[in-house]
């Protein structure tokens, strides 16, 4: 592996909210075409970490590089960096007064300056990729949660990002809608998209992740390939957490 393969480098990120230390020195790297999954109890700083990567939240300390550009450098054009990092939110966050098509086209036209016709082509292609070409003219309120999340993934994909950050993309969905979103994400992972995913879907994590990061209390407790982490966790806390979450989400996935 050469240095060129590393697309994202996060170094010693610290963040404190009102005296509460949410992140206490997080460092990791992400290689091109790699999928990493971050798991851990709620309130552990997983979402904050994702937001620190594209500076939606400003870290108190630490640095982030995307493709050798230092994101945390004050001189970096942060809007340009953000346009090359996809972000999929827990609550989809589609623009409610715009159709699915316009949601996907918006960034292409207004951020990338793409002509309407070309933007429409790209947007329709991405909507097709998430299986929603026929919903292009529908407004968010006319779509199910799963469909909305797929539109939001299409929106991220359309920007042709260097990587996509997923912040608990299925946590706000009804159980029967989770599958359709995970399917799209599995396809993405297969197609070689670089992804960093925060999720509680352990079975999914195991299936797609090249590496799992277990976080708790603002630090990375343990990281490694899914098989190692799930079958032979080194830390007691990892074991306890996995045990708890398997009880919650069913034995099947844990046994696999």
């Amino acid at each position: 592996m050469t240095i060129k393969d590393i697309i994202l480098k996060v170094e010693d990120i610290h963040k404190t909210y009102n005296g509460l230390k949410v992140l206490r020195g997080i460092s990791f790297e992400l290689k091109r075409r790699e999928t990493k999954v971050i798991i851990g109890p709620s309130g552990t700083g997983k979402s904050t970490l994702l937001r620190c990567i594209n500076q939606l939240t400003l870290p108190d300390r630490g640095r982030v590089w995307l493709d050798r550009i230092e994101v945390t450098d004050a001189k970096t054009n942060i809007n340009k960096v953000r346009s090359s990092i996809g972000f999929v939110f827990q609550n989809f966050n589609l623009i409610t007064h715009l159709t699915a098509l316009d949601n996907v086209r918006l960034g292409l036209m207004k951020v990338k300056g793409m002509k309407k016709q070309k933007a429409t082509e790209v947007a329709m292609e991405e909507l097709g990729r998430v299986g929603l070409a026929d919903k292009a003219e529908n407004y968010p309120a006319e779509l199910s949660g799963g469909q909305q999340q797929r539109v939001s993934i299409a929106r991220a994909l359309a920007m042709n990002p260097k990587l996509i950050l997923f912040d608990e993309p299925t946590s706000a969905l009804d159980p029967e809608l989770i599958g359709e979103v995970l399917e799209v994400m599995i396809e993405l992972a297969k197609s070689g998209m670089t992804m960093l995913i925060v999720t509680h879907e352990i079975g999914f994590a195991r299936a797609v992740a090249d590496e799992i990061i277990f976080m708790e209390h603002g630090v990375i407790v343990e990281q490694g390939p899914p098989n190692q982490l799930f079958t032979a966790p080194k830390h007691k806390r990892t074991k306890e957490f996995l045990h708890k979450i398997t009880q919650l989400y069913g034995e099947e996935e844990a046994k696999n």
Binding site: N54, L56, N79, K80, V81, R82, S83, S84, I85, F87, F89, N93, L94, I95, T96, L106, G107, K110, V111, S152, R155, M159
Partner: peptide, 10 residues
């Protein structure tokens, strides 16, 4: 929604 378009680079 505003966070989302901020993340798009607006």
């Amino acid at each position: 929604q505003i966070t989302a378009v901020k993340a798009l680079g607006m």
